[in-house]
Design a protein around this nucleic acid. Structure first.
Lengths: 251, 251
DNA sequence: CGAGTTCTTGAGCATTCTCAAACCCTGTGG
DNA sequence: CCACAGGGTTTGAGAATGCTCAAGAACTCG
């Protein structure tokens, strides 16, 4: 627990993230940015939360990359969600619920730990903040439903393409984003997120490569033909409910 | 649009539903029950919301049974959620977001239409109500994630068993519930919810019957061996985050 | 009784999985 | 700087789960 008191404006990325879907006056933004928090750094593979934990705080991802997953009694693992910097990781702990899922860092990540009560009282006092947080929850739910659709209805190739589109699109909207989609994902993780086997992911990725749509090399995707990918992926980013769309492209 | 002004205490089922997961003082409960609403009755198969709609109100299911689904560009349909009486159907419209999903009645259903602003101001004024609504959203999200897991990781038999367990369990917690799980579901709908083919659902159901675990006859499930079913289904109801569990049984 | 669902069954097929082994990176320690 | 360890990727062969298509039977509702 290598914590340190946060004083700087590192929560700005959180506000940026909320402003993708909800208008926030500067006063509200400032109130969020100046929330007291504790900074925590976690290595790749380390857990931020485990199944069954009952955390007493909320967590905002400041840098890095995090997955949410659930492992069943059968031992099978399903990745349920990925988080980018600025995303709140565990709003479910606003009201301390026992967690069904685990949160695990996919690379070196920094998070801000904030007190639930601090955030809750902001929500209670300022309607715009309640709106932003509630919409955040609603959008996460919409993304979850898209994942249900993805694993339930799409073929392996479409499914993988859709995942890449989603992550690429979200990455594109990060502050300081510069072209080129780099995602620290192994094929095993793609498999766990799509409900496929890593063997089959490998073969499908290979197919996409031979079709000159993208290439994959140790976590780095290079998308040659974004339109073909989005078309194939059945991807339309409306389910994010964001203001800033760059049309259908992911770059 | 056969509306009528609601005066009675029909929203009591909504409060009951919230109280499954969040303690609500009587004052708050009363405030919710006396919300003004408009009553609407919809036939089987009719839509309460369509993909792309932007509803300006929130809806509580009072009686009947409703599904949420999404149909992709490819024309494939995935059921994403089922709703029982007392469940709020479209909290995402609290802040009027364009819908990605459709809501469709599976049998004759009554809903209460309430004004978003009425509910929002209750949330703003009364922390317990904000808590109840937010927890409701969080629990729906948890259920969605269980569905991702279900469709992504479980075999056909387990998947179907899990769905039956979930619905049976939720039905059990309905007020005025009397033994015997009756769900107005066709095999096609089970297929659409589990990401399987109706043909395959039929064969799998048949298997479950021959194993003396349950029987299915025009929408009526009779569960012979609930323990075997829950065991097979990999089902544990913790993801509902409800106070009242009847252990592991579904009855 | 008739029309429209819904269910059932068969046969053949496709997609995806399992198992197993080899290969190839990348970072680490000697 | 090399060797090794360990994770990650690639390949093959065979098997299984679940799909498609198609048609007939059985309900249900008006």
């Amino acid at each position: 627990m290598n914590g340190s008191e946060g004083k700087s404006r590192q929560l700005a990325s959180f506000v940026e993230r909320l402003r993708l879907h909800t208008a926030l006056p500067d006063a509200e933004a400032e109130a969020l940015i100046t929330l007291p928090f504790r900074l925590l750094t976690r290595d790749r593979h380390s857990y931020l939360m485990r199944q069954g934990d009952e955390l007493r705080h909320c967590t905002i991802l400041l840098s890095g990359f995090v997955e949410r997953h659930r492992i069943g009694l059968n031992g099978r693992k399903q990745i349920l969600c990925f988080y980018f910097p600025g995303d709140p990781l565990n709003l479910e702990n606003l009201y301390t619920m026992r967690s069904d899922d685990a949160l695990q860092a996919l690379k070196l990540s920094e998070v801000a730990i904030i007190q639930c009560d601090d955030l809750l009282s902001l929500m209670q006092d300022r309607p715009a903040i309640m709106k932003a947080i509630v919409r955040s929850l609603l959008i996460d739910a919409s993304i979850s439903r898209e994942w249900i659709f993805n694993v339930g209805q799409r073929s392996a190739k479409t499914r993988i393409a859709h995942l890449i589109c989603e992550l690429g699109f979200r990455k594109t909207l990060q502050p300081h984003h510069s072209g080129g989609v780099t995602l620290p994902l192994t094929q095993v993780q793609i498999a766990e997120a799509t409900g496929l086997t890593s063997v089959h992911v490998n073969r499908t990725l290979k197919e996409l490569q031979s079709e000159k749509i993208l290439s994959y090399k140790s976590g780095v995707f290079t998308v040659y033909d974004i339109d073909a990918l989005a078309e194939l992926a059945d991807f339309s980013p409306s389910y994010f409910h964001w203001f800033r769309h760059n049309g259908d492209g992911v770059v």
